[in-house]
Design a protein around this nucleic acid. Structure first.
Lengths: 230, 230
DNA sequence: GCGCTTAAAGTCAGAATGACACTAAGATGA
DNA sequence: TCATCTTAGTGTCATTCTGACTTTAAGCGC
């Protein structure tokens, strides 16, 4: 009844996939939530774009598998990594044989915008704006939507926004992250009050020079363990 | 790279387990969060208590598997059911062979207190107060703690509390649910204001008679789809 | 009818939030 | 040099939300 090995049982296959978010400026210079997709080179959905992923190695933890295929796909390390959901509906791959059924444990990750600029890109790996995705393989459009919801929600109460930025940053840069993720503009004064009140950042004492206006204070994220705790 | 069947691959086994919550009065008549556990009858952890669960049938959805083992364990149907987390650490079953590795996709469920009173109970199926658990098999103590956290958190913003109650109920009964789950007393006036403001209940027009004081209004939950939407 | 108990409504102060105004400090250019 | 532009950073005000508490309503038991 309860868990233990049942090798004789016809079990569904287990895969781990990852929704990897970063921010990239679009043509107008506005930051947009962006993610890498991989072109499938076999049936089903041959030729269509899909989330990076693959089977879980028997020797690795779930989050390790997610980190590994993040590295394989983009050449990058995650700044934040958290399990999203396990997708296992019977109709995920329409028309396929039951024996080919795949249960995907999906993670979502944040990578720094600075690093992401140097990420792997090729004929079969391309980065897309999250709100301008083509039709993806399997149920991957739904998965991305769900991950976006989680990202937006989590931004409100968790200290994750700085994961998109470098070690130090101005409040305007941090606010741009919020605005890009939430898709709306925020009042600079109120944003400053919120951020300072929550103590999620601390001033470095240095200022950013070279702007064409009053030089802003540089901040860093206050020291908090990030990523999943499980 | 991406997902599709890999039968030749040595894959971890996949199980679905369920944390089933209900409320039961303790010796003092106070409602307590309570859940059923199953005694293991084989190694590893032979004889210890564990969450109900079992392998995922190739023909059923994840949530169906959770519902099924809820029914098999308790004889009940869930009033609310949601995926909790997928647990897959390598060290979940200390000392066991890699080939026996199990990844558990865990659901959590709410069942009505009225129905739960008539649930199956036996030598090998017993209900425990959530904050007085013995040492459980595998990582199941951690899983229950995580589920409790999710329950408490979700109570604050989702319409789930009525899942513990019958079709109609008084605000005092609903408040008792909140108090039992959150583990602290709530101000009756403020609770009423909150509940009415959020529009999560509507008066039936009837009153509960037979109390030894002013007869309270009966309410029902406003019509909202409950349970997971995925 | 009197006192007990809980229902239900109302009051008040402090915290959090959104909209907005105002001052500070640099660069730019006439 | 100095007015102007731009963003940094501070401050104000009204609204809403929240927790603590008060007051009145309406049944029951005696």
């Amino acid at each position: 009844m309860t868990e233990s090995a049942q090798s004789a049982f016809v079990a569904p296959n287990l895969a781990v996939s990852t929704v990897i978010f970063t921010l990239r400026p679009d043509a107008d210079g506005k930051l947009k939530v962006t993610l890498p997709l991989v072109r499938r080179i076999r049936a089903p959905f041959d030729g269509q774009w899909a989330l990076p992923g693959g089977p879980l190695n028997i020797t690795e933890d779930l989050s390790q598998a997610a980190s590994r295929n993040l590295l394989e796909t983009t050449g990058l390390e995650p700044r934040y990594l958290e399990q999203l959901y396990a997708f296992g509906s019977l109709d995920r791959s329409p028309g396929s044989n039951l024996a080919d059924r795949v249960v995907s444990i999906v993670y979502w990750a944040l990578v720094g915008s600075d690093e992401a600029a140097a990420a792997i890109e090729s004929e079969n790996i391309r980065w897309f704006e999250a709100d301008r995705l083509p039709q993806l393989a399997f149920d991957h459009n739904q998965i991305v939507d769900y991950a976006l919801g989680r990202l937006r929600n989590k931004l409100a109460y968790a200290r994750i926004a700085h994961s998109f930025l470098a070690e130090t940053f101005t409040l305007a840069q941090l606010r741009e992250v919020y605005e890009a993720v939430l898709g709306r503009e925020l009042d600079p004064g109120n944003f400053r009050r919120m951020v300072e009140g929550d103590g999620i950042v601390e001033p470095t004492g240095e200022r950013l020079a070279g702007t064409r206006h009053r030089p802003p204070q540089l901040y860093r994220a206050t020291n908090t363990a990030t990523g999943e705790t499980k």
